[in-house]
């Protein structure tokens, strides 16, 4: 009977775990919906921004902003966006693998790397891994404000302005759908525009107030910030989706485990009963 009792406590503990994972799954599902809405809400701004930057790149050929000029690369800046909490499947690990692979490649080309980190998971990962971390930001919450990211972006933009880094990349997860999140690294600086010369036919330019340089500085800074912000918001949607899926899998696994244990428990119980019966019968026969 001892075996049966142990099995029963095990079932209890797994049931408790299942309750937690189920609750987490539901929380993640509702948060994911909100995060997706937020992700969609950021898109018009980035799209409008891209249009304006595109126009400006075309209409103002005499002034080339440093953000638009390719220069020989010696040092690379990398902004890594991760989640603050774990229990979201392989989301962070897949991204880090990609980042480490890219870093290895850059190292092979004798390029130095500076890293700016957003999110607690990346903070602990890169602290363990080593690497030249220049800024950290974490615990921005589920609905981050743009202000909270400005610092991290500014560090990188400043060092780009000073010529300290020659290229800036952003590593984050892309939300494909609820089941799929794709880790990716995209180039932020210099801004890569898709050059279609067909649009160059009509030549017109903006009036700039106060002057082209100042307006362009401001605009491009906001553009980069909006891209990073979008990356962050998208990463949160990814986190919630990944957590939902991971917790659903955990709940399902707990369910199958409980089923198996229930079977084993019943078998043990029946074996005990049979044993008792046979003992009684053989005892009676001996009398």
């Amino acid at each position: 009977m001892a075996g049966a009792k142990e099995i029963r406590t095990q079932i209890k503990s797994i049931q408790n775990t299942q309750k937690i994972t189920k609750a987490m799954e539901m929380v993640a599902a509702s948060k994911m919906r909100k995060a997706q809405d937020r992700m969609r809400a950021t898109r018009p701004y980035a799209a409008k921004m891209r249009n304006v930057v595109h126009h400006m790149g075309k209409s103002h050929p005499e002034y080339r902003h440093p953000y638009l000029i390719e220069r020989p690369v010696q040092r690379i800046g990398l902004i890594v966006i991760s989640t603050d909490r774990g229990l979201c499947g392989g989301l962070n690990i897949n991204l880090f693998k990609k980042v480490v692979a890219a870093m290895k490649e850059w190292h092979a080309q004798n390029l130095e790397i500076e890293i700016a980190i957003i999110g607690a998971k990346a903070v602990s990962y890169f602290n363990r891994l080593g690497g030249n971390v220049v800024s950290q930001a974490s615990h921005l919450g589920d609905a981050p404000a743009v202000e909270e990211l400005i610092g991290s972006v500014k560090v990188m933009l400043d060092s780009y302005d000073k010529g300290h880094i020659d290229r800036l990349h952003l590593a984050s997860n892309e939300f494909v759908n609820t089941m799929t999140q794709a880790p990716g690294i995209e180039q932020l600086l210099p801004i890569v525009g898709d050059e279609d010369d067909a649009n160059l036919k009509h030549h017109w330019d903006y009036l700039y107030e106060p002057d082209a340089k100042e307006v362009m500085d401001d605009l491009l800074m906001r553009y980069i910030e909006s891209l990073v912000y979008q990356g962050q918001v998208e990463n949160i949607a990814c986190e919630m989706a990944a957590r939902m899926v991971a917790m659903k899998a955990a709940s399902d696994n707990a369910g199958t485990m409980i089923d198996e244990l229930a079977l084993a428990y019943n078998k043990a119980r029946q074996a005990a009963i049979t044993q008792e019966l046979s003992e009684i019968v053989s005892g009676a026969a001996a009398v």
Partner: peptide, 19 residues
């Protein structure tokens, strides 16, 4: 409210970019 002063924009305004 542009940096250089309040602006009123009517249709067919010339292209303008300001803070």
């Amino acid at each position: 409210p542009a940096v250089m002063g309040e602006l009123g924009i009517a249709p067919r305004h010339t292209p303008l970019l300001t803070r």
